[in-house]
C-alpha cells in the first residue's frame, strides 16, 4: 500500500518550505521539521518533506533511492523521473552523492537553472565540523555532515570558480535540514 504524504498538504508544505528557506538563507544552521512523515525506506522524513514541498510535474527528478521510494515520490509529486543526473532539476542522493560537476550548472545568463542536490546524509550537526562562511553567515557557521565523501570539498571549491553557475545543496538527516548554497565557502574544521 502507498504510504501517505503530508497530512495537511498546504500547511505542511508551507512550514517545510520555511525551514528550507531558513536553511538556504543561513547556511550551516540546522532546522528541525515539525511535520511527521513515514516515507518508504531509505527516505528520511526530512528528505521526503523536502521533495513533497519542492518537486512536481515541472521538475525532473533523478534519484538513487530504489523503486519503492521512486514510486512514492512519483505518486505524491507527479514528477518526471530523469534517467541521468545531468537531466534533472532535482537530484536526490541517499547514498554517495554524484559528482556535482556532472549536474546541470545553469548558464551565466540563467544560473538559476543549476540543479538542486537533495543530499540525505548520515547525520547533520551544527557547531562542529566544517567552517562555513559567505552570504547568510554573520561570522562563521560550523556544520558536520556525516558521510561526506572524500573529494567533496575539493569539488565544491572548484565550483566556486564557475560562479554564478553551480549547484545548491539541501542536506537532510532524520528530521533535520541544512543547506549549502553555491555561495558558501567551506573550510576544514
Amino acid at each position: 500500500m502507498m504510504r501517505p504524504g503530508f497530512t495537511d498538504p498546504v500547511l505542511d508544505a508551507q512550514s517545510c518550505f520555511r525551514a528550507v528557506l531558513e536553511a538556504m538563507s543561513r547556511p550551516g544552521r540546522v532546522q528541525r521539521l515539525a511535520a511527521p512523515l513515514q516515507p518508504p525506506a531509505p527516505l528520511a522524513p526530512a528528505t521526503a518533506a523536502v521533495l513533497l514541498t519542492l518537486v512536481d510535474a515541472e521538475t525532473p527528478l533523478w534519484l538513487d533511492a530504489g523503486d519503492e521510494a521512486a514510486e512514492w515520490v512519483r505518486f505524491h509529486c507527479g514528477c518526471p523521473i530523469a534517467t541521468t543526473p545531468a537531466e534533472a532539476a532535482f537530484v536526490l542522493a541517499t547514498g554517495t552523492p554524484p559528482d556535482i560537476a556532472a549536474l546541470p550548472q545553469g548558464t551565466d545568463e540563467a544560473p538559476e537553472a543549476g540543479a538542486t542536490l537533495v543530499w540525505q546524509a548520515a547525520a547533520l550537526e551544527a557547531g562542529q565540523g566544517w567552517r562555513l562562511s559567505g552570504p547568510g553567515i554573520e561570522h562563521e557557521h560550523r556544520l558536520r555532515v556525516g558521510g561526506a565523501p572524500e573529494g567533496f570539498r575539493a569539488a565544491w571549491a572548484a565550483q566556486r570558480g564557475r560562479y554564478p553557475r553551480g549547484v545548491d545543496i539541501i542536506l537532510c538527516a532524520g528530521e533535520a535540514i541544512a543547506a549549502l548554497p553555491r555561495t558558501t565557502r567551506i573550510e576544514e574544521g
Binding site: 498538504p9 508544505a13 538556504m24 512536481d56 544560473p111
Partner: peptide, 24 residues
Amino acid sequence: DENTKRMIRRALLKAVAIPGHQVP
C-alpha cells in the same frame, strides 16, 4: 494554488542562492 506556490518557492531558493540575481 499549490503549484504556483511551489514554482515561486523554487525561484525564491535559487534567488537566495545567487544573491542579487534576478530569477525569472
